Simulated scan of single mutants.
Amino acid sequence: MSASERVVAEGARRRRRPTKQGTVLSEQLIVGTALRLIGEHGAAALTVRRLGAALGCDPSAIYRYFRDTDELLLAVADELIGRTLSGWRATGDWRADLRDLGLRMHADYLAHPQAALLTCARVTGRTHEIQAVETILGILRGAGFPDGEAVRIYHVFVDQTLSFAALDASTLVLSERARALEVRTWPQTYARLERTTHPHIAATASVLVAEMGRSGYPAALEMMLAAAAARLQHVTASPSGT
């Protein structure tokens, strides 16, 4: 029997007996456990053996819910997207709504940096991702962007957010020693460069040290939103809409 043939309907899953720990397996429980284990062990957590041990079940039981660990990883990715959407409500102000969604998405990924590194580049095709695509395109089309512009801005918005999430997550998963070195390099190296040899760095040193100690995502997001607003003004003022 192949892995795909072992995946069974949800109703049949719920009729399974509880695990050794007294819990009944579900897709949500497996995904939540996988997300926790990824946070503790990184990519090495995604084995049915580790999951089975954590859930108190026979590892083969995982295949009743997921064909393989890659399908489980896509479910973890979709769970992170769902957490961003949970509790979010549109205000009707497209810039405010995109800003809020972007900052939420970035923060939710950084709350799970190991999972962010594994999932940021994946397309899940699952429920929460589909809802996110529909929501963002709806915001843009509702603001008056023509369809082509709406799709392009959606593309830039999502890729920018996920790229910064992956970049910032990669810093968070460094060893304590490596992270401390990162923090020290700006004030101890750049801030001490001589004006005679590095005039531009020396002139901006205090600002540079402060700026490089935080994520560039909020500023990049504002630049993207400003560019999108300028584009909207242009296409709505143009008779051809181009």
Rank of each mutant, 00 (worst) to 15 (best):
A90W: 00
L85H: 06
Y190T: 09
L74R: 11
W88G: 03
M212L: 13
R89H: 06
H112E: 03
E182T: 14
A143H: 12
H106S: 07
G138P: 06
L172R: 15
T196A: 15
G142F: 13
L172S: 08
I130L: 14
I136Q: 01
A180K: 12
V151P: 00
A96R: 09
A77M: 07
A90D: 04
A180Y: 01
A166Q: 07
A77F: 02
A219D: 04
G87F: 01
M105I: 02
T124M: 05
I81S: 00
D93A: 15
R83E: 15
G87V: 06
H112P: 01
A116L: 04
T91Q: 10
A205W: 01
A132D: 03
T161E: 03
G142I: 13
A165L: 05
T197D: 04
G92L: 09
E79F: 04
A96N: 04
A143T: 11
R122V: 04
L140A: 08
Y109F: 15
P218W: 05
R184D: 13
A178K: 11
Y154V: 08
L118P: 11
T119Q: 08
A165F: 00
S175Y: 00
M105G: 03
V123L: 12
P113I: 04
R152T: 13
L117G: 14
L74H: 03
S175M: 03
D78T: 13
E211V: 15
G138N: 10
P146Y: 07
E79S: 15
V151D: 06
L140S: 04
V207D: 13
D147L: 09
R184L: 15
G148M: 08
I153M: 06
H155V: 02
R104V: 12
R89F: 00
E79T: 11
R141S: 13
